[in-house]
Simulated scan of single mutants.
Amino acid sequence: MKIFAVGLNYPSHNQEMKHVFRSTEPVIFMKPETALLKDGKPFFLPDFSQDIQYETELVVKICRLGKSISERFAHRYYDELTVGIDFTARDLQKRLKQNGLPWEISKGFDGSAVVGDFISKEQVPDVQQLSFHLDINHQTVQQGETGDMIYSVDQIVAHISRFFTLKIGDLVFTGTPAGVGGVSINDYLEGYLQETKVLAFRIK
């Protein structure tokens, strides 16, 4: 099982992070399988970072084997979706970037890819017209609309498949909007897709 993620896919997040980079194609990175955290299990703050930040995202699950998929057929290759958290060790990421070094460890550490309960794509009218949000301690801290994506889900899936064979069960984190922030011990996180709560876990 592979976990793909997309960076810089919402203009609002790019602005808040002061990114001036402009890409003509989706920015893809990966997390190892050991990054997956599911079933409401708690997230334990690691000892190598003092600034763990949440990034709330729509996540889709691949349902068919695919390679070099055309964008117009990409919708056939995922059938479930949920809300996920791409946890980032922001201080570690900044230090690595400043030194021109790879920053995978700041994104791919154990437990850094949290996913909620998946729902069928058939339950939503349009994947590119969905709202999602994250509450921490019952206060909304981040919200987004998939219609604001720079690259659509279908464009992302098609692009990834040019380089990697997609297999059943692979996950794609599709990018985060503005509103990222830090977490602390005992925080309670709840993720919503539209008005349905699909994610709930605590920080330990």
Rank of each mutant, 00 (worst) to 15 (best):
M1H: 07
K2P: 02
I3S: 04
F4D: 06
F4L: 10
F4I: 10
F4A: 14
L8K: 15
N9Y: 00
Y10M: 07
Y10Q: 10
N14M: 15
N14Q: 14
H19M: 08
V20W: 03
V20N: 14
V20P: 02
F21S: 11
R22I: 12
R22Y: 14
R22E: 15
E25P: 01
E25M: 08
P26A: 09
I28A: 01
F29T: 04
F29S: 08
K31R: 11
K31Q: 13
E33V: 08
T34L: 10
T34V: 12
A35Y: 03
L36I: 15
D39K: 09
G40E: 06
K41W: 04
F43Y: 15
F43H: 07
F44Y: 11
L45K: 10
L45D: 13
P46V: 09
F48S: 05
Q50F: 10
Q50Y: 12
D51L: 13
I52V: 15
I52K: 03
Y54P: 12
E57I: 05
V59D: 08
K61C: 12
K61W: 02
K61N: 02
I62A: 08
C63W: 00
C63M: 02
L65F: 12
G66A: 09
S70G: 09
S70A: 15
E71Y: 09
E71W: 05
D79G: 07
E80D: 08
T82Y: 10
T82R: 11
F87K: 07
D91A: 05
Q98H: 08
I105W: 11
K107M: 08
G108R: 06
G111P: 03
G111L: 04
A113N: 03
G116S: 10
G116H: 08
I119K: 09
I119P: 00
S120Y: 07
K121M: 14
E122V: 11
Q123N: 14
Q123C: 06
D126I: 10
Q128D: 07
Q128L: 07
Q129Y: 05
Q129F: 03
Q129I: 02
L130S: 02
H133C: 13
D135K: 11
H138Y: 09
T140C: 13
G144Q: 01
E145H: 14
G147Y: 05
G147P: 01
D148I: 00
S152N: 10
Q155P: 12
I156H: 04
V157E: 05
H159F: 15
I160F: 08
S161R: 04
T165G: 06
L166T: 01
I168F: 03
G169D: 12
F173S: 08
F173Y: 15
D187M: 03
D187V: 12
Y188F: 13
Y188K: 15
L189S: 07
L189Q: 00
G191C: 05
G191E: 04
L193G: 03
T196V: 12
V198F: 07
V198H: 04
F201S: 00
R202T: 14
I203Q: 08
